[in-house]
Amino acid sequence: MKAWKWWLAMLSVAAMPVHAADFKLGYINVERIYREAGASIAIYKKLDKEFSDRREELKKMETRAKDLESQLGGNSLSQDDRKRFEREYASLDRDYRAKSRELAEDYNQRRNEEFAGVTERANRVVKEIAQRENYDLILQDAVYINPKFDLTPQVLKELDK
């Protein structure tokens, strides 16, 4: 949340005529929901499977690069072999960096696509809890929250139904 939005929200809360008994506050930890919800765990497993071949290809490239490094570290190579291995290593390094970057970008895009549904469902569950239990304010970003206000376990439970 942008700083000015946060301050505006806090000023709005502070300006409300609040009686402690009438005001009900809650908090949810979105990162915990993304880590622990059953749907989230299933998404991570799905993505791991979807991207496993590409990760394996990168591991093979790493292994080959280590082999080339060890061969280049020795003194038993001829000038021609040394130049050939150095060219191969440079080419492998370029390919590795490009494929690694592409993998990270593709993975992040797919993760965001998959988690859009989890976010939508979690927001719906939070709104249902807020209406059902008469919450006045439910936060999801805060520096510190007293654990008694944490609704995350309840949200996780309802998400996993």
Rank of each mutant, 00 (worst) to 15 (best):
P147T: 12
A21N: 13
S12C: 06
A65D: 05
W4Q: 15
G73T: 12
S100M: 06
L156C: 08
E31H: 12
F115L: 11
V143T: 14
S78Q: 03
L103N: 00
K161A: 10
V118T: 03
E128S: 09
E57A: 07
A14I: 10
L151F: 06
A116Y: 14
Q140T: 12
R55D: 02
R101K: 15
S78N: 05
R101H: 12
N29S: 12
S78F: 06
R132C: 03
D93W: 14
D53N: 06
A14E: 03
N112K: 14
K127N: 15
R35D: 12
D106K: 10
D106Y: 08
W7T: 09
Q71G: 00
W7K: 09
N123Q: 13
I145Y: 13
S76G: 13
I41G: 05
A65L: 14
Y107F: 13
R35A: 15
E102F: 02
G74E: 06
M61W: 01
S12A: 09
G74S: 10
R132W: 03
I33V: 11
M16W: 06
A116S: 15
P147K: 15
E158Y: 02
L11E: 06
L68K: 02
V13M: 05
R84W: 05
H19G: 07
R54M: 04
G117N: 11
Y34I: 08
K148G: 04
T152D: 01
K2Q: 14
E69A: 06
L139I: 14
N108A: 10
L77E: 00
E57I: 00
